[in-house]
Simulated scan of single mutants.
Amino acid sequence: MCHNCSAAAAAAAAAAPAPSRRSVARLLAAGAGLTALAACTPDAGTRPPSSSSPSAMSASTSQTATPSTAAPATSTAATEPGAAATPTPTSAPTPASPAAGLPQQHSLTDPASPWLVVNKHRPLSPADYVPADLVQPSVALAVSGEAAQLNSTTAAAAEQMFAAAAQDGVTMTLASGYRSYGTQVATYNGYVAARGQAEADTASARPGFSEHQTGWAFDIGDGGGACGFQPCFAEQPAAVWAKANGHRFGFVVRYPWMLHEITGYYYESWHLRFIGVEAATDMSAKGIATLEEYFGLEAAPGYL
C-alpha cells in the first residue's frame, strides 16, 4: 500500500505523473488484467512535522466485536492473475451482527487495538494518532526513518514471519511501514495539486484514513525490486509465500483480489495487516477475505 517513503522519492513521485486508479480501472473493465493501485502511495513533497504525540492521544468510544462465523457474503469467483477466467467485480457485503467466535474481543475503533478497522467510512480517532510504541524491527529493510518502524506487536510478529520465509528460501523486505499523519498530509496534498481531489481519492488515502498510520500495517518487497508495488508482484515468491503463510503469524492481505467494492482499494498483494494469529487463522479457515466481512461491517468503496 505504500512505496518508498523517503522525501526524495516522494518529491519525484509527486512530480512525475503515474497511472491513475481511474485509468487502470478502465483496463480492468476492458479485460486487460489485474489492477492494483496503492491505498497509500509515495510521499509527495516535504513531510510537515506531525502535530501529534503519544500524550495527545484521546480515548474514543470503543466498538468491540467477535468475528462472524458465517461464510463471506460476496462471491470470490474472480480468478487471480495467471488463470483463464475473466475477473468480474463482486458485490458489497450485507452488514451482519458478528456471531460468536473467538473468546477474545478487541475494539474495532481504538487505534491501539489489533482489530481496528480503518477504511473510507472509518477514519482514525484521533485523526493525528501516533502509536506509543514505534520500533524498528530486526528485518531486512528497503526504507529508513519512520517508514522503517512498526508498533512493537507488529514488529515482533514481522520478525518471526520474515525469519520463517527466509528458512523457506524466500527473501522478504520491509518496503514501507509507519507513516505519520503529517506525511500523509503531504502525500495526499501532492496528489490533489497534481490531479485534483476526485482523482487523488483514487490513488491516495486521505490523512487520518491510512492503515500505515496505525503501525499495524506494512508493505513487503522481495529485496530485488522486482515488480515492487505493481500488479505482477502478486506472482513474486515473497507475495505468494505471505499470502499462503501470513496468517500463521497474525497477518492478512488487507486488500484482496477483486474486493475493492468492499475495501475501497484495488488488490495490493504487498500490503499486510496484523490482526493476531487467532483471528487471521480463523479468517483463513473460514475463507473470509476482508476485515469488513469478518467483523460484520458495511462495505466502504468510497468516502462518505
Rank of each mutant, 00 (worst) to 15 (best):
S138V: 08
C2A: 14
A70N: 04
K120H: 03
S204A: 07
A127E: 10
V135N: 05
Q136T: 12
D222H: 14
A155K: 01
T35K: 14
A10G: 15
S125Q: 10
P72Y: 05
G145Q: 05
N119W: 01
S180D: 01
A166N: 06
C40M: 12
E235T: 14
A14G: 14
H106Q: 09
A15P: 05
P72T: 05
I288C: 13
L28I: 15
S75R: 02
A92G: 00
L34Y: 05
G208F: 02
V117E: 01
A99S: 15
A157Y: 01
Y255M: 05
F162M: 03
E298N: 02
P93I: 08
P98I: 05
E80P: 15
S68V: 09
A226G: 10
L28D: 09
A165N: 02
M172V: 15
F209Q: 06
P131M: 04
S284F: 08
A73N: 05
T61C: 11
H121F: 03
A14N: 08
A85L: 06
P54W: 01
A65I: 04
C2T: 09
A99W: 06
L124K: 06
L150V: 08
S53I: 09
V192P: 07
Q63G: 07
P123R: 01
A285N: 14
T154D: 04
G196T: 06
A244E: 12
A32M: 12
M57Q: 12
S113T: 08
N245Y: 14
Y129P: 00
A77I: 12
G190F: 06
P256Y: 08
I220M: 07
Y129L: 06
V277Y: 00
A65H: 02
E293R: 11
T109A: 05
R47M: 07
P301A: 09
A226Q: 09
P207G: 00
V185L: 05
L102Y: 11
W216V: 13
T214V: 14
